[in-house]
Design a protein around this nucleic acid. Structure first.
Length: 649
RNA sequence: GCCGGAGUAGCUCAGGGGUAGAGCGCAUCCUUGGUAAGGAUGAGGUCACGAGUUCAAUUCUCGUCUUCGGCUCCA
């Protein structure tokens, strides 16, 4: 007998060789039906794999990530089996799971390209194979035998993968007539898979290296119930409706023009107004936190970026230098603001008493992103960072870092962003050539970030090898409508630029010392931030951000004079309005989809004109009754303040 | 940059070797008193751009540009 410890720490005894499915069955029939995989002593296993020693276990259903992973992993194998069925001789790369679903990188014979029609065909065949309830069987194999097996299949992709594995750890999985190299775990059989959608085809380099050949990547997602698939498809449709490119167009926020150039956004009046609100908001917060605004040019001498090290990094892959009539003189469109701010710091000597100095600028930068990478406002070639650089003494670093975290919290709170991930990015210690600066300084900087996060009680994930080339950083990632993660706010510690630019301050000991620099951008960039904001709010912005807060609806042109008076008063209160002008000339006709996003409607007719009132409706919240004008203005202002409450202390 | 889709009216899209189509929007007029509406009329297009095949190309072929889904990269 062996002892099995369940997650609630209760212990049960089973005969040696019991498997996950049997354990589940001994607990409840329902669990036995739902369970997909099992964690045994920290390792996720197949349900059918015998357990021969005492173990602590955890059973995973569809609700658990491990359960979904197992499910989708088996689905990837099922898809591979089907692809091999239709295209014998297909070579298989890797077939992992992703956030929603799975993919498989394949190389089809005779340079065959898959089309959407093929996907439908494959889907149907997959369902057919799934229903055959073929058991998925694990077997161990020696490295030599594995290499032999896949070389017989002429699958050099798998051979390459196997050659890197250690002998004795190699396992195969087989279902139906299909055998694949795989660590597992897998479902007991294929019949768990009830609903299948192959979502897209894309090219992907073998092992992610653009020097390697391009494979065909087939994405799919599967579910244990048809209903879950339907829900998923509905969700995807909803997400498409929230796409910031679509809403941005509908609301006239921004546009692109071929004539101007790709990746260069043009902000339309309403979009500019939205952006201005955000800028004003952040400027106000920053003022409170002791920042000073600075302004710097959009270009800089090439040598400035050679000094900073950015040229080495960005030179070839960015916009090429601008030459001038003077020989040998070259300027670069600025890819970042830091060097300019360093030169501001350097403009005069500093005492330790001056620090920290915090220079802020909404600085527009230019980066030549690869053409295939451009995407709406989230990935552009000209964007404005809400940038600031903090120059401080080493002993002030942690404190300053924590204050920046505070600012980011203020912003996220004001906009109800609560599903963010904070990621600490550290250097890869095995690849020192990727980074500039001394290991000692890197250690100090990384320590400061980790401690600041701990002291702020911030939940973080840590990624090694993700640091910037000049220093470690803390990034805040937010998901867009389709669940893709975007980096927004960023805080980066930098011991490196101060050295390169010979930044100094005079300490209390009358000696020269080097300040530490913090780069930070709470929004990240205005472009990306607005994009994510649009998708989060589906275009229904918080009141204080709405390009228009109120629509006036004069009942007929007879009341235009009164309408004009209402407008003037609201303007005095700084309440942004538009007028739906079905009848007359004091406003403009407002499109339906635009109207849906304006929070307040004011109806103006005879009754209102006589009594000096307005009838108020709030979108999605019905009639608010008849109000005196001033009363209404106060009402709106109060709502705005309500949304910003808690930010002003 | 690479692989694969797409580019036709302001928007969403249909069409197809031989006068260019719809819905919505837009313009003008009429109607409309608690609503974001109804009617009539009308204006919008080098069918992304450039070559080629053809008696004839928006349609077929090739190239370029842009755009979409991915890959590498990044705010």
């Amino acid at each position: 007998m062996i002892k099995i410890t369940l997650p609630d720490n209760s212990v049960r005894e089973y005969t040696k060789g019991v498997n996950g499915l049997e354990i589940a069955r001994s607990i409840s029939n329902r669990l036995a039906k739902d369970v997909l995989s099992i964690t045994v002593n920290g390792e996720v296993w197949d349900l059918s794999r015998p357990i021969n020693t005492d173990a602590s276990i955890n059973l995973h259903t569809w609700e658990a990530k491990e359960g979904k992973d197992t499910f989708w992993h088996s689905s990837a194998h099922l898809m591979a089996e089907t692809i091999e069925h239709f295209y014998p001789g297909t070579k298989f790369g890797i077939g992992p799971t992703v956030d929603t679903g799975f993919y498989y990188d394949v190389e089809l014979p005779d340079n065959k390209q898959l089309t959407d029609k093929d996907l439908v065909k494959i889907e149907q065949k997959m369902l057919e194979l799934a229903r055959q309830k073929n058991p998925i069987v694990r077997s161990e194999i020696s490295k030599a035998d594995a290499l032999k097996l896949f070389s017989e299949k002429n699958d050099e992709l798998k051979e390459e993968l196997i050659s890197e594995l250690e002998d004795g750890t190699i396992t195969l999985y087989n279902q139906g007539g299909f055998t694949d190299l795989c660590r597992g775990p897998h479902l007991p059989n294929t019949s768990y898979i009830k609903a299948i959608k192959l979502t897209s085809i894309a090219g992907a380099y073998w092992r992610g290296d653009e020097n390697n050949k391009m494979l065909t990547r087939v994405y799919g997602v599967t579910f244990p119930k048809q209903k879950l698939l339907e829900e998923y498809l509905v969700m995807m449709e909803e997400a498409k409706k929230r796409d910031h490119r679509k809403i941005g167009k509908e609301m006239d926020l921004f546009t692109f023009s071929e004539a101007v150039g790709q990746g260069l956004p043009l902000w339309m009046p309403k979009g500019a107004q939205l952006r201005e609100q955000l800028e004003m908001f952040l400027k106000k917060v920053q003022k409170k936190y002791g920042y000073d605004q600075v302004i710097t040019p959009h270009i800089g001498d090439v040598n400035l970026y050679k000094t900073s090290g950015h040229y080495e990094k960005y030179g070839k892959d960015s916009f090429q230098p601008i030459s001038t009539p003077a020989e040998g003189e070259e300027y670069l469109l600025k890819p970042m603001n830091c060097p300019h701010h360093c030169e501001i710091y350097n403009a005069r000597p500093h005492s330790y008493k001056d620090l920290p100095l915090r220079y802020a600028e909404f600085g527009t930068v230019y980066r030549y992103e690869q053409s295939g990478e451009l995407h709406g406002l989230t990935r552009v070639r000209s964007f404005t960072q809400d940038d600031a650089h903090i120059f401080c003494r080493p002993d002030q670093l942690k404190e300053e870092f924590k204050k920046v975290i505070d600012i980011i919290f203020i912003i996220f709170k004001a906009l109800s962003f609560d599903d963010y991930v904070a990621q600490i990015s550290l250097r890869d210690p095995n690849k020192p050539e990727k980074y500039i600066g001394s290991p000692e300084n890197w250690d100090k900087a990384e320590k400061a970030i980790i401690e600041a996060c701990e002291e702020k009680g911030l939940n973080t994930v840590t990624e090694t090898g993700e640091a910037a080339f000049y220093g470690p950083k803390l990034d805040f990632m937010i998901k867009d409508a389709l669940g893709r993660s975007w980096q927004l706010g960023t805080i980066q510690v930098d011991y490196n630029l101060p050295e390169r630019f010979n930044l100094e301050y005079i300490g209390a000991d009358d000696n020269r010392h080097q300040p530490v620099m913090i780069h930070r951008a709470p929004f990240g960039s205005m472009e990306r931030f607005v994009a994510v904001l649009i998708e989060h709010t589906a275009g229904k912005f918080p009141l204080w951000l709405t390009p228009e807060q109120v629509v006036l609806l004069p009942i007929s042109e007879k009341y235009n004079d009164y309408g004009q008076k209402v407008l003037n008063i609201l303007n005095n209160y700084d309440i942004r309005t538009i007028i739906d002008d079905r009848n007359e000339k004091i406003g403009r006709k407002i499109r339906d989809n635009e109207l849906k996003r304006v929070p307040y409607l004011l109806i103006i007719g005879e009754k209102e004109a006589e009594t000096g009132t307005v009838s108020v409706r709030k979108q999605g919240d019905g009639d608010k009754g008849v109000m005196k004008l001033e009363e209404f203005a106060e009402f709106i202002l109060k709502e705005v303040k309500g949304q910003l409450s808690g930010l002003n202390n």
